[in-house]
């Protein structure tokens, strides 16, 4: 089926044909029973769909819609603040802890080395997670959405 015929059928289904287009479509229909059958089928589907609608949610859903979004945005900011605060506290505590271990003359050398290895592992883990997060955010499809 060519584009013009599709265009005319669609306009016919949509009740928006002009007089000239009506005549043109009639000619096409008269010459092709197949197209006539297609149109009948399209009309029937349209008829079924015209009786249906998407279910309405309750009024309360709309009343709370913006508030939900606002709460999510607010909580997003709260989480960022909490994470930043914790990161600073954790960094400072770790620094102080390491300092105290280094200065501790009673602690056996192998314990100091084990703690050093442990903290090194922890740092690598954090770095790896941050790098993964950064890469995911770089490939985020939504970043490309722009008009």
């Amino acid at each position: 089926m060519n584009d013009r015929t599709l265009y005319l059928i669609e306009k016919y289904i949509d009740n928006s044909l002009t007089k000239e287009e009506s005549v043109e479509l009639e000619k096409i229909i008269n010459n092709s029973p197949e197209i006539k059958k297609d149109i009948e089928e399209q009309k029937k589907v349209r008829e079924v769909l015209s009786k249906m609608k998407l279910k309405d949610p309750s009024k309360e859903v709309w009343d709370g819609y913006w508030l939900d979004i606002y709460n999510r945005l607010e909580r997003g900011i709260a989480w960022i603040a909490i994470s930043l605060g914790l990161l600073v506290i954790f960094g400072y505590s770790s620094y102080e802890f390491v300092q105290s271990i280094i200065k501790d003359t009673h602690m056996p050398q192998f314990v100091k080395i084990s703690l050093g290895v442990f903290f090194f592992g922890l740092l690598v883990l954090i770095w790896s997670l941050l790098r993964e997060k950064f890469k995911t955010s770089k490939n985020d499809n939504y970043k490309e959405i722009q008009r």
Binding site: L6, Y7, E10, E41, Q42, K44, V45
Partner: peptide, 16 residues
Amino acid sequence: MSRLFYARKELGKILL
């Protein structure tokens, strides 16, 4: 228009 036509056609096949 063509996407709509073929979408309805397929839906029709399943529904009719």
